[in-house]
């Protein structure tokens, strides 16, 4: 591209140089003089033919350069532009597809949210039921254990109380027997023991 611009600039510069004359400045200052000079210039320039030849060569060169460099350049440039346009279209199609998918997803989002809320609600209810059942089971166990412990403690207390009462009763009885037992009664007890021994033998 830069090369082409350079060539075109040089061509314009050459063309301008070719058509430029020293009297142009004065002609610009005076219109009539200019017309007269132009007439005399067109009619009497002996180098006009060569100028045209020169111009033709120049144009031919320029044409050659245009055909050799410019056409492939513009063709390549056109192909690149077409390719870019194609890629842009493809990208646009992808973006459109994505946008459509996102829109579709967004449109289904409320449904999904509702489904998720329903699932979460069902799960919470299930968990609540499970916890409720577990709590009830634990309560039953604790109650049963507590009842057993209470029963055991009551049984033990009853046994201790019974033992204590029995000890008190026996101590009381021992004291009374000791205080009221006469020697004859003591001998009688020994005699009863002897009779018991006889019974054991028999």
């Amino acid at each position: 591209m830069a090369k082409l611009i350079l060539i075109l600039t040089m061509a314009v510069f050459c063309f301008a140089q070719e058509h430029a004359t020293p009297g142009d400045a004065h002609a610009a200052a005076n219109g009539e003089a200019h017309e007269k000079a132009a007439e005399s210039h067109d009619a009497g320039d002996p180098l006009l033919f060569w100028k045209w030849v020169n111009f033709g060569i120049l144009m031919a060169g320029l044409g050659y350069l245009f055909v050799k460099q410019g056409i492939p350049f513009f063709r390549e440039r056109g192909a690149g532009i077409l390719k870019d346009i194609s890629e842009a279209q493809k990208t646009k199609a992808d973006a459109d597809a994505r946008a459509a998918a996102i829109e579709a997803r967004i449109s289904n989002l409320s449904t999904e949210i509702a489904q998720m809320q329903a699932a979460a609600s069902a799960e919470m209810q299930s968990e609540a039921r499970r916890l409720e059942a577990e709590t009830a089971q634990t309560l039953t166990k604790i109650q049963s254990s507590a009842e057993q412990e209470i029963a055991s403690a009551a049984k033990q207390a009853k046994a201790e109380l019974s033992a204590h009462a029995a000890s008190l009763a026996v101590e009381l009885a021992a004291g009374r027997i000791r205080s009221s037992l006469s020697p004859s009664q003591s001998n009688g007890l020994v005699g009863a023991f002897i009779q018991d021994l006889e019974k054991v033998k028999n």
Binding site: S162, A166, A169, V170, A173, A174, I177, F193, D196, L197
Partner: peptide
């Protein structure tokens, strides 16, 4: 054949 022994037996029965 002692009173102590008989009271001990009585206590065991009571308990």
């Amino acid at each position: 054949g002692s009173v102590r022994g008989q009271l001990a037996t009585l206590r065991r029965k009571l308990v």
